[in-house]
Amino acid sequence: MNFRLPTLSIVLFLGIIYFLYTGLDKDPTLIPSPLIGKTVPDFKSTDLISGEDITNKELLGKFYILNVWASWCYGCSLEHNHLMNIYKNNEIDIFGLNYKDEKNSAINWLKERGNPYKNVIVDVNGNIAIDYGVYGAPETFIINEDGVIIYKHVGPIDQSFYNKIILPLMKK
């Protein structure tokens, strides 16, 4: 006992120090996505406004943004103006994934604030969001012509998102 306890505490201590040290230069808020570099998962749903069927096949061959949003989501209201600005630039399509929302409140929300989305994919149960590995709304994916997810942002986007993230990715 007399020799084991001190040794154990020193080993434990060094282990903890090691993990603390490695944590120092990491950004704890960064959430990696296992789906980056992979093709988008299949889904089948309807469009919020038109009610027509929509699948991931329709989105293939385009460079686009997929924005996960909901009318109950406070962060979404913060980023909405920035999405509208991107929409007005008219260089890239934005698709919405309406996450765990009520149809009427979602439609009213878009009526009040403007609709930046080319299509809004309805995801009432959040099943599609699970396939995309969504943590919560809002989240924004950038997907290239081959249907591969090349970027993911968690939380509301800001003004710099278009210039600093989207444009460089489009030019590649």
Binding site: I10, F13, L14, I17
Partner: peptide, 11 residues
């Protein structure tokens, strides 16, 4: 670290 070392030696 030093105090654990001290403990290791002297306890």
């Amino acid at each position: 670290g030093l105090s654990l070392l001290l403990y290791f030696v002297k306890s």
